[in-house]
């Protein structure tokens, strides 16, 4: 029973991803997910993509300067994002799809804010499931 229910639930997720974003995909490691906790250094609310810059210490203690993109502002505001969503110094937990070449770059799926709230990127990609259909 449990297996069946999980299968049904998975099907819902897959269906929900069937209309996944048709955002420029060429540079991304499609389906890969990273969750990083770090400190915001800049929130750039801009076209063609907003950029969230944040610093994260890697396993060897080295500070990595991450840059993560979202879609343009008019596509973000319907999902609750604003120019004031982040302040420098905010501790955030970012789930993103990284680029393929290993640079500290990716596109945001969701961000957990200092107050515990979560902003979802609205790009049709699921934060936890890497099996979503791709264009």
């Amino acid at each position: 029973m449990r297996r069946m229910l999980v299968a049904v639930a998975s099907g819902v997720v897959l269906l929900s991803c069937a209309l996944a974003a048709h955002h420029a995909n060429a540079v991304f490691d499609l389906g890969k997910r990273l969750t990083l906790t770090g400190t915001v250094t800049e929130w750039f609310w801009a076209n063609p993509h907003c950029l969230l810059r944040f610093d994260v210490k890697n396993d060897s203690g080295e500070m990595m300067h991450w840059v993560a993109e979202t879609q343009a502002p008019p596509n973000m505001t319907p999902f609750g994002w604003t120019k004031q969503s982040f302040a420098v110094g905010d501790q955030v937990t970012v789930t993103l799809e990284p680029v393929k070449n290993g640079s500290p770059l990716g596109r945001i799926l969701q961000v957990k804010l200092p107050d515990g709230k979560t902003l979802v990127a609205g790009n049709g990609l699921s934060p936890s499931d890497g099996s979503g259909a791709r264009p």
Binding site: R2, V8, A9, V12, V13, L15, S16, A21, N123, G124
Partner: peptide, 24 residues
């Protein structure tokens, strides 16, 4: 289990909406 399915079901239109039904 029902809650999990419900959440996923509820999430489904929200995720779809991000592309197929983006609101202003």
């Amino acid at each position: 289990i029902v809650t999990a399915i419900a959440l996923l079901t509820l999430l489904s239109p929200a995720i779809r909406g991000q592309q197929g039904f983006r609101r202003t």
